[in-house]
Design a protein around this nucleic acid. Structure first.
Lengths: 151, 151
DNA sequence: TGTAATTTAATTGTGCACAATTTATTAATT
DNA sequence: AATTAATAAATTGTGCACAATTAAATTACA
């Protein structure tokens, strides 16, 4: 038997092309990078954008709740929230009933930005050219994975 | 017709739960985070790990080639490579035939680390509990997406 | 051959991302 | 009531990630 082409490399699992994590990491970065021109128009970053997404739905949340929704900790969120506050898009104030909690709220200006942000998902749709089935499958599997991480 | 539950919210596309990018971004971060304990044992970060993966396969590459394989630019790679050099895992030297190119090579010490790194993918397999079909589908779609990005 | 254009890394500046620690506040337990 | 434990956010320190610019070397071409 001619086994010149039979792969017997014990390092196979270490090849970049055999990784599942790497294309995940690369795709994630690439998509975030493609958001940038659209988010630049709004004067915000991707992390600021997803933070606002939560606040556009909730109005008031504390840092802990925000962190669990976004998979981010206070070390990341604190400076992000300070920048959003400086831009006038959110306000930060302690909960008078429990001073440990910081209540983050959307401002009128932040609410107004939502009107311009509604365009972003449609603009992005033109950048991610997956057909409906693949996009649906990708979404399903990623959500499943996130759910398993939460267990 | 009772349409109390018919969603007519024009902001639907802005909901975090309707995003494809967000679970991609969150899964990517979560998996990289789960690599950390295993990579800590080797004294390297995830970015350093994927950089070494290329060098374990290639022996010599310049920064441009490395960047195109890893989807990283020199702004990211230059400091990463300096740290790997400080650890003694790689060497950096200019190409005498074209001094613009920096040739990155694996050292004996870097090659030796491969022996310990072979365990990492198997340890990680226990952290990402997708069944074979879903893992395969995820891989297929992500590679397809990366390919479309390259066009 | 000399100048302009191109190519390759490095540098600079901003903003995450996260582990580990600290500080402030509240809750639980003597 | 005083002490201890638990909780929430902020701080600190390290390491990416990337856009924009710079510097050095090479190539194109006038």
């Amino acid at each position: 038997m001619d086994n010149r082409y039979v792969e017997t490399d014990r390092y196979n699992a270490l090849k970049l092309d055999n990784q599942l994590c790497f294309p995940l990491y690369a795709c994630s970065k690439e998509i975030v990078r493609r958001y940038k021109p659209f988010l630049d128009e709004l004067g915000i970053t991707y992390t600021q954008y997803i933070t606002l997404m939560v606040l556009w739905e909730e109005k008031n949340v504390n840092v802990k709740e925000l962190g669990s929704r976004l998979f981010l900790d206070s070390g990341t969120l604190t400076p992000v929230l300070k920048r959003l506050e400086q831009k006038g898009l959110i306000s930060r104030q302690r909960d008078s009933r429990d001073e440990r909690n910081l209540i983050v709220s959307i401002t009128d200006e932040g609410e107004a930005l939502k009107e311009r942000a509604v365009e972003v998902p449609y603009k992005m749709a033109g950048c991610v050219k997956l057909d409906r089935d693949d996009a649906g499958e990708l979404y399903r599997i990623l959500k499943l994975l996130l759910q398993k991480f939460g267990e």
